[in-house]
């Protein structure tokens, strides 16, 4: 991994997490999926850096493939 930040970078992690889960409250599964897709696109535009985006996609996919293994930079 090159440019992707893999160290903690979000202040107030518990508060952020609560807000993220709260965002989906009362939504159907389909609505939730749509919100997630829009969120991914909004965040991707914020990041902007193509290399970082590729690394992030790879990290997301790998973390799922390896089950419990966490992605360590």
């Amino acid at each position: 991994m090159g440019k992707l930040i893999t160290e903690p970078n979000i202040p107030d992690p518990d508060g952020f997490y609560e807000e993220l889960v709260g965002l989906h409250e009362g939504l159907t599964e389909a609505q939730s999926a749509a919100v997630n897709a829009r969120l991914v696109l909004i965040l991707a535009n914020q990041v902007g850096d193509r290399e970082v985006l590729s690394e992030a996609m790879e990290a997301a996919r790998k973390a799922a493939e390896n089950g419990i293994d966490r992605q360590e930079g």
């Binding site: 749509a34 897709a37 829009r38 991914v40 696109l41 909004i42 535009n45």
Partner: peptide, 17 residues
């Protein structure tokens, strides 16, 4: 399709999409 629709929904409100 999910991402396609997300892009279209966002494009109405945000230039970036």
């Amino acid at each position: 399709r999910l991402f396609r629709d997300a892009v279209l929904d966002l494009s109405e409100h945000f230039e970036f999409a």
